[in-house]
Amino acid sequence: MEYYEFRAMNSVILMGAEGQGTAAGFEAARSFIEAAEERFSRFRETSELSYLNRSAGQWTSVSPDLFEVLDLSLTYYRATGGLFAPSILPDLQRAGYTRSMDELRAQGVDPVSADHFPSRAPAFDSLRLDHARSRVFLSQGMQIDLGGIAKGWIAERAAEVLSAYSTACAVSAGGDMFMIGHPQGQAGWDVALEDPRDPASDIITLWIDQGAVVTSSVAKRTWRQGNQLRHHLIDPRSGQPAQTPWLSVTVLAPHAALAETFAKAILIGGPRTADRLTRENTAIKFLAVDADGQLWNSAHHKEPVYA
């Protein structure tokens, strides 16, 4: 297994691959990730997403990649009962997340008044998609952040690029992972799950066959706004950082965008939502970690499954 690591999307990107052409595969996957970041970042004025956000209120032609991610977003918005909603961007900005996490940590919260951002944006399902002409209509006042779903989608696509050069590969974009094939002599992949209470240690090691593993955590991207500790998971029902009994939720699913959106929805919605979503979508499995370090899973979410 050969490895390649670099930084993009404000995250560490780690790729692993086996085969004859891994060096070329790593370069191809890196090029794809960097181009995709340029397209999907809300922190870059020149990105296609920023252009779309500036074009709210009118039909806008977009690239096939952006159209696909928006289409998936609408699908998962409906599947999660609105708990995953990319239109929470104004709420996120009002909570202080106005620039990239790297900049936020280095420079602190922007001293922009919360009133600068609209208090209630239009619901995400007011987004209209013109499949025939690859056009999008954002309602007036709607602003979109595709951060999580785009990162998962990019990880999966990058793994597909890398798989053309390798017999088995995995791509991790800040912990959003997608795996194709198996390492030689193994029946799966070891993936450590970080303890959300202590980033230096792992709480369990997961054994993954193939597909996606994604974790959402309220402990990972945090900052202070005044004397309040904020995190980046906005509950679309309240417009505030979510109050949740769990610190992190990890979802295993066939696709990274599915895993990403369901991890977020389960973490925001809590045990009842987890119960409903896993009954309706048997392809996903989840593992939650609470403040005591107890693990909770799909089948027995009322009882801890690991001590």
Partner: peptide, 12 residues
């Protein structure tokens, strides 16, 4: 003896 990093999921 190749450097073997560990795949780790932590939340984004």
């Amino acid at each position: 003896r190749a450097f073997t990093p560990r795949f780790r999921t932590a939340g984004s």
